[in-house]
Simulated scan of single mutants.
Amino acid sequence: MELADRAIGLILASISVTIFTYYTFWVIILPFVDKEHFVHNYFLPQEYAILLPVYAGVSLICFLSVFIGYVMLKSKKKKKV
């Protein structure tokens, strides 16, 4: 089991570093590259650099709120019984 945990941790860390590098290049470096350069073909428009993290954050907050509410309701029912 320990080997599987390490493999999953390595995969998650690799994905995180890849997303961080892609986003950092997209937001910080890409605005200084000419619009005609071929590297712009690999990135979404700049508007999405703000919209995607905002939507992800709102979705995460909504999911956490529903989860916490569900756990609170479930624990309240256990106290009644």
Rank of each mutant, 00 (worst) to 15 (best):
L51P: 02
K78F: 05
E36F: 06
L12C: 12
I8C: 14
G9E: 05
V66K: 05
A49M: 08
P31T: 05
E47S: 15
F67Y: 15
R6G: 11
V54L: 14
V71Y: 04
Y42W: 11
V39L: 04
L12M: 06
L3F: 11
A13R: 02
A7P: 00
I15S: 12
P45G: 06
G57S: 10
A4S: 09
Y55K: 15
E47N: 10
I28L: 14
L10N: 14
W26Y: 14
F20Y: 09
L3G: 15
L12H: 04
A13T: 08
K35H: 14
L30M: 01
Y55I: 11
L73D: 03
A56P: 00
Y48E: 06
F32N: 10
L60F: 06
N41M: 10
V39I: 12
I8G: 13
I29A: 00
Y48H: 14
F25I: 05
K79Q: 11
M1Y: 15
I28V: 15
K76T: 00
A13Y: 01
V81S: 03
K76R: 13
F63H: 09
S65P: 03
L44D: 12
K74V: 02
F38M: 10
L64A: 12
F67T: 02
H37A: 06
S75K: 02
I15R: 01
P31N: 06
Q46R: 10
K74A: 01
L64C: 15
Y70A: 01
A56M: 07
V66S: 13
T21Q: 00
T21I: 09
S16P: 01
I11Q: 05
S14C: 10
V54E: 08
V17H: 05
S75R: 04
K74H: 02
Y48R: 14
W26V: 00
V71A: 05
P31L: 03
V54P: 01
H37D: 04
Y42P: 01
F25T: 02
L44G: 11
A4H: 09
G9L: 01
L52G: 10
D34H: 10
A49Y: 03
S14Q: 15
A49N: 04
K74Y: 00
G9K: 03
V66Q: 06
I19P: 00
A13H: 04
K76S: 08
A56D: 08
R6N: 14
S65A: 11
E47W: 00
H40T: 04
Y23D: 08
G69W: 01
V66L: 11
R6A: 10
L44W: 13
V27Q: 03
P53K: 06
D34T: 07
D5R: 12
L12T: 09
G57Q: 06
P31H: 07
V33P: 00
F43R: 00
Y48D: 01
P45W: 07
G9S: 03
V58R: 02
K77F: 04
V71T: 10
A4M: 09
F20T: 07
L44K: 07
M72K: 15
